[in-house]
Design a protein around this nucleic acid. Structure first.
Lengths: 158, 158
DNA sequence: GTTGTCACCGAATTTTATTTGGTAGGTTGG
DNA sequence: CCAACCTACCAAATAAAATTCGGTGACAAC
């Protein structure tokens, strides 16, 4: 699927203002509401744009701790990777997980109600591949910049 | 602001389905549309729920590389921290940034069109505090679990 | 030139959001 | 205990938005 300027603008607008009305969106991109809606539906069907999320202000809602975790596997077999991935996906507290190149194998972001709970999760992760996994925890002190979408401007074209 | 069960359900529903209609939301939480809308407005005013984001499927939209970056400052003065934070916030390619405890000072997630661009950004970050900053890059190989909201169930009550 | 496709628009219709009283429950102060 | 006062709710009316439905023009294939 190739994107003209209008579809790009739809994507970047919906990325940052998911609850905009179709009419407003149509105005912004210079289409009629019906055409605009057609485009949005196509972008959704093609899965260029996925779920729409409300961003919660967690500190205002409940007590919580956020931890960024680096993981290295001593046994870097495909099997070990898959085992760890599956386990990470199964934990709702693991809100984000990546495999990476370089000096670590995984980065996780974990959110728990308190340190005791975090510690329990940490232990569970260590138990996945006993003795074969190296985990370092980094408690988040401040969120300097929360994720608010990708910079499409700097990514597309040029 | 204290949250009863209904408001919690509103928050968790909007977190994962930001474009739900107010009528459907009202049905789900067992309120009339007008009461439900009232609640949502209050939650928004109190900033318990913030911007609504559409999640883009970046690989389907354009070529890009994603890098997770660890940063350590040699000079851990307040001044150095603030300088680095401000710089990170100024780069649109830095889509996420945290200060953390432990063996690093910052974690960043950076998205660039290609490695050459990423390298340029990396250089710019190094130039912020010449010789005083230690940066390690970890190219994202796979997204095991993308962020899709916090697990409110495990965070609230008990 | 004819046919088919595609994306668009405007208008009609359906659905949703929003506003506007009106009511019940709970609290406060007399 | 009662009255004044909140608060949160609902139902109904209105305003706005989403969605559907032809109809048109541009373009490509034949």
């Amino acid at each position: 699927m190739q994107l003209d300027n209008i579809s790009q603008k739809i994507l970047s607008t919906l990325q940052s203002e998911a609850r905009i009305t179709n009419q407003d969106l149509a105005d912004r991109v210079g289409l009629s509401p019906s055409s605009c809606l057609n485009r949005v539906r196509k972008l959704e069907s093609a899965q260029l744009i996925g779920p729409y999320l409300g961003t919660l202000n967690l500190p205002k809602i409940c007590r919580s701790v956020e931890v960024i975790v680096t993981v290295s596997l001593k046994d870097q077999s495909t099997e070990a990777f898959r085992t760890f991935q599956t386990a990470a996906q199964g934990h709702p507290e693991v809100v984000e997980c990546y495999t990476v190149s370089g000096s670590f194998d995984f980065f996780l972001r974990i959110v728990a109600p308190d340190m005791a709970r975090y510690n329990a999760i940490n232990d569970q992760l260590l138990d996945i591949l006993p003795g074969m996994v190296n985990i370092s925890s980094h408690v988040v002190l401040t969120t300097v910049k929360p994720f608010r979408g990708y910079p499409l401007d700097t990514l597309i074209e040029e």
